[in-house]
Amino acid sequence: MTKDGLTHLDARGNAAMVDVSEKAVTKREAVAGGRIAMSAAAFAALVDGTAPKGDVIATARIAGIMAAKRTSDLIPLCHPLPVSKAAVDFDPDPEHHAVNVTATVRTTGQTGVEMEALTAASVACLTLYDMLKAIDKTMVISDVRLLSKSGGKSGDFTRDAG
Rank of each mutant, 00 (worst) to 15 (best):
T138Y: 08
R61W: 03
G152I: 01
A24Q: 12
A121I: 02
R35T: 02
C125P: 02
P94C: 07
K53S: 03
A134E: 14
G33L: 01
A40H: 13
H96E: 12
A121K: 02
V140E: 11
S84N: 06
A67C: 04
G5L: 13
V31Y: 12
A24T: 01
A32T: 01
P76S: 09
P80I: 00
V123A: 03
T102H: 13
H97K: 05
D91Q: 14
E29D: 04
S150Y: 10
S154E: 05
A42E: 06
N14I: 01
T107L: 15
K153R: 15
M66N: 14
V101P: 03
D130N: 11
G34R: 06
A63H: 12
R61Q: 13
S122P: 03
T59Q: 09
A86R: 04
A32Y: 04
N14L: 03
V25F: 10
G162F: 12
T50H: 14
S39P: 05
L128I: 09
A63R: 09
C125E: 04
P94F: 10
G49C: 08
V101L: 14
T59A: 13
L132N: 08
E116D: 06
A103K: 06
M66F: 11
A30C: 05
A44M: 03
S39H: 13
A120S: 15
T138F: 05
G112V: 02
G54I: 03
G152K: 08
A121R: 02
V99Q: 11
